[in-house]
């Protein structure tokens, strides 16, 4: 059940899209092999694989329609990972209920909690606003949590049009990054005061 739950809760549009890409690319590779060699078995395989094209197109249409939604509410149970440090980041999350932990993972395999966030807090903006930067920490649900996942386009639209919002994010981001740098450089330090909301 866990992989299915992960598929449903995680960044499933990207996974569904990847599945569509694999299916259609497979047909294309078989198609090239079939017309270049004109081998009867590869040709018949190409014919049999045509069904994958139909499935791939349907999956793409589903992703294209659903990825237009600006905000999706997701549910996480205690201990489940929202995203991992190093993952590519393109969504921003706002907590509706519950608590999450921001964990800085170290090279030796250990991890340290750098902050705890609750209802009204957000996370995930650092990787989005600094292009090509992967996730800087792992986020894990400490209790059962309901979290809004906001699409990058919706978030960037807000960021570009509201200067106050930009300033607010900058203030929130700095302490996190300072704390993160301290954790990675030196010995464990106590958690600092929570940044202003």
């Amino acid at each position: 059940m866990a992989p299915i739950q992960e598929l449903i809760r995680g960044d499933w549009p990207a996974r569904v899209l990847a599945a569509a890409q694999v299916m259609i690319a497979t047909v294309a590779v078989v198609g090239i092999a079939a017309v270049v060699t004109l081998n009867p078995y590869i040709l018949l395989g190409f014919g049999a694989a045509q069904g994958l094209i139909v499935i791939g197109i349907v999956l793409f249409v589903i992703v294209a329609m659903l990825s237009q939604r600006a905000m999706v509410l997701e549910e996480f149970s205690a201990g489940q990972i929202v995203f991992r440090q190093g993952d590519p980041g393109h969504h921003v999350y706002v907590i509706r209920s519950g608590t999450v932990e921001l964990i800085a993972e170290k090279a030796d395999g250990g991890g340290e909690i750098i902050d705890r966030l609750g209802p009204g807090d957000h996370f995930g903006d650092i990787a989005l606003l600094r292009r090509n930067l992967p996730r800087q920490f792992t986020v894990k649900a400490a209790t059962q949590a309901h979290i809004f996942r906001i699409s990058p386009s919706g978030f960037v639209q807000l960021y570009a049009s509201l200067p106050e919002f930009r300033e607010y994010l900058r203030q929130r981001e700095e302490p996190h990054l300072r704390r993160l740098a301290a954790v990675r450089k030196g010995p464990t330090q106590p958690l600092g005061p929570k940044p202003p909301k």
């Binding site: 990207a14 899209l17 990847a18 569509a20 259609i24 047909v27 294309a28 198609g31 393109h90």
Partner: peptide, 25 residues
């Protein structure tokens, strides 16, 4: 890479995963 379900990537997918395959059938 890493943002395949967003913005202009979807236009490229529309070609590669929908229009060309529809012709390939």
């Amino acid at each position: 890479r890493g943002r395949q379900t967003e913005g202009n990537a979807l236009w490229l997918h529309l070609l590669g995963l929908c229009i060309f395959p529809l012709f390939l059938l």
